[in-house]
Simulated assay, not measured.
Amino acid sequence: MIKHVDYLIIGQGLAGSLLAWELIKQGCNIQLIDNQQENASQIAAGLINPVTGMRLVKSNNIKTLLPCAKQTYHELSQFFKQDFYIENPMLRILRNEKETLKFHQRIQDTSYLNYLKTKLKTAPESIHAPLGIVEQKQTGYLLTKKLLACLKNFLQEKQCYQATQFAYQDLQFDKAINWQGISAKKVIFCEGYQAIYNPWFKSLPFQLAKGEILTLTAQQTLPPELLNYGHWFIPLDEHQFRTGATFDNINLNTKTTDQGRSALLNTLTQVMPILGTTTLDKQQANIRPTTLDKAPFIGPHPEHNNLTIFNGFGAKGSLLIPYYSKHFTQHLLNQKPIATEVNCQRYF
């Protein structure tokens, strides 16, 4: 017997999961296919940080993106009766005179005052920061693995989740799209880095980047704030923390490396020498689906309108995906145009 759905979603990372949530809220029938391999979302730090990079640049459209992300994660927390988004100030350690100069320029711009405190902090004894510390506001992190597990259970209860390998050659085109007994109006590919193998969307200019992350336990009591010093530091409790992430666009695999671990530990102990002795609990690696112009790929294929993509959110997925899930849903249901800067057809 054929199962009829509106949308067949491929991939249960943060993109596929939040899009599925949004479409179900709007009354759509969906089926989500998950290959059950660990994806980048599951190991991601989930950081939300409005001002990033050495030049302290405010994320585009942050006044729209940030409230939407917070509202979405609050809604999910209420539904599942669990906390997923942890708001926590971030202490940014100034590493050189260029960063210091850029900070003083930014605080002259009133549009940055919601995100940066105007006075430099003196570093506590445990942190080595001779040039001072910038306190960033409206920062936090998403417990992505916990959220994805809850959404997976939700989809399973609704009988619209299927754990299986998806093969492109099994798609059959007619008036609808058919795949292994499922008939769908549209397919939405949310495959993360595996989109480079997708026969319809592999020409899009992904610029993949491998990242490694460590989870460690310290003997000392940890500072409660997030830290940013080129890498990041997230305290999970008084003693356990995560740090990352490396950036490697050459060795595109999911294997952990001694070099990655050493790089993260070296920068960590330069900033917090007291963490010279820690216990390694876990080392993880995955591949970020980053793109050439740092903007996601959203929308239909130019020749196959019923094949669509929702991908390419890179390291800012926790911030971007809630808003663009709603944006794409409005396109799918009400034919609202997709914003030019994220429309995948900019590259076709």
Rank of each mutant, 00 (worst) to 15 (best):
H128G: 00
K202S: 13
Q36K: 14
D237V: 10
E341L: 15
E87M: 12
C68H: 12
L292I: 14
T139L: 12
V134H: 00
N61I: 08
L56I: 02
F173V: 07
A263G: 01
A263M: 05
I93T: 04
L32H: 01
D293M: 04
E97P: 01
C190I: 08
L332M: 04
I234T: 09
Q330W: 06
L236H: 06
T254V: 13
S17Q: 11
F241R: 05
K152Y: 09
Q219Y: 14
N61T: 08
D6Q: 05
Q165S: 15
K121H: 15
E341W: 13
T291F: 04
A195Q: 13
K63I: 10
L222Y: 12
I86N: 10
L113W: 14
K336G: 10
Q259H: 08
M90T: 15
S59N: 14
T278C: 15
E97Q: 15
L333P: 03
L47H: 07
Y347L: 13
I48Q: 09
S126Y: 12
N29G: 06
F297T: 05
V51E: 01
C160H: 00
P235K: 06
N306G: 05
C190Y: 09
Q180W: 02
A195S: 15
F310D: 03
T164N: 10
P235Q: 10
G260E: 01
D109H: 04
E22T: 13
L252M: 06
D281S: 02
Y141W: 14
N49D: 04
H104M: 05
T254L: 02
P300C: 11
L226D: 03
K255S: 13
T267S: 12
K119P: 00
I182R: 01
E157I: 05
F80Q: 11
Q37M: 10
Q138V: 07
K175S: 14
E191I: 13
T221N: 12
L265V: 02
Q71P: 01
K175E: 14
